[in-house]
């Protein structure tokens, strides 16, 4: 009657390594811009200038709002888009793997549309929703959705068939097997998809804001460049 023990926590070390690696990046930046002046401020400003400007932006409005206002605007669109992508993408991914007929019907459409880059949707999104929060949220959604679908699908596909057999043997119906056996086992993969969706959505959002809109971090960057 042996019980395996889990390995003891290794948490402190990655923290140390992480701090060291980021510290080196900061050091190189300082050395290149402020100490040796290898690159001029028109190519890359020094970290001290960046910090000073950042502090300034938090209090003084720029391009219509203070930094917090732009951050809030971006976060709002981002969370709408990502939330909707998770809400629709995860169940669709699960059903792709669970119901072959559903996959057969929906997958061709999904595979065709997902090769259209998120930014390519901007013109049509503007036609539909105008230069609004909805437009940017739609771009976020389009960037975040496939990761949710594909990872949920993979997670469910990789559930060992014998677990599904066992569930049936012990009297579970399809939906019970799905809820109690399949989804819990697929959860790590589903969360991987959500993590990718979150970052994909964020990157697409800032990109979309560079092109369209009058608030948000991408807009702020575009305005800063024009000055």
């Amino acid at each position: 009657m042996t019980v395996k023990t889990s390995p003891s926590s290794l948490l402190p070390q990655p923290l140390v390594y992480g701090a060291v690696s980021l510290g080196i990046l900061g050091l190189v930046w300082v050395l290149a811009t402020s100490v040796f002046g290898w690159v001029g401020p028109e190519v890359l400003p020094s970290p001290f200038d960046v910090i000073a400007r950042f502090a300034n932006l938090t209090t003084e409005p720029f391009a219509g709002a203070a930094l917090s206002g732009h951050v809030f605007a971006s976060l709002e669109r981002w969370s709408y888009g990502v939330f909707l992508a998770i809400l629709l993408g995860v169940p669709i991914g699960i059903f792709f793997a669970w119901a072959p007929w559903f996959r057969a019907v929906v997958n061709p459409v999904f595979e065709t549309l997902r090769y259209i880059p998120p930014f390519a949707w901007v013109p049509i999104a503007i036609l539909w929703f105008g230069a609004s929060t909805t437009t940017q949220a739609m771009v976020v959604f389009i960037a975040a959705f496939p990761a949710c679908v594909i990872n949920a699908q993979l997670g469910v596909q990789h559930v060992d068939d014998i677990l599904i057999q066992a569930s049936r043997v012990f009297g579970a119906r399809q939906h019970q097997t799905l809820r109690r056996v399949v989804v819990p086992v697929a959860t790590p993969s589903i969360f991987t998809g959500i993590r990718i969706a979150i970052s994909n959505g964020w990157m697409a959002l800032v990109g979309a804001e560079l092109v369209v809109g009058k608030t948000g971090l991408g807009f702020l960057i575009a305005q800063g460049q024009r000055e």
Binding site: D160, L163, A166, V185
Partner: peptide, 11 residues
């Protein structure tokens, strides 16, 4: 049924 590979629900 008792399966060769146990088939316990891991979660």
């Amino acid at each position: 049924v008792v399966f060769q590979k146990f088939a316990l629900f891991p979660s």
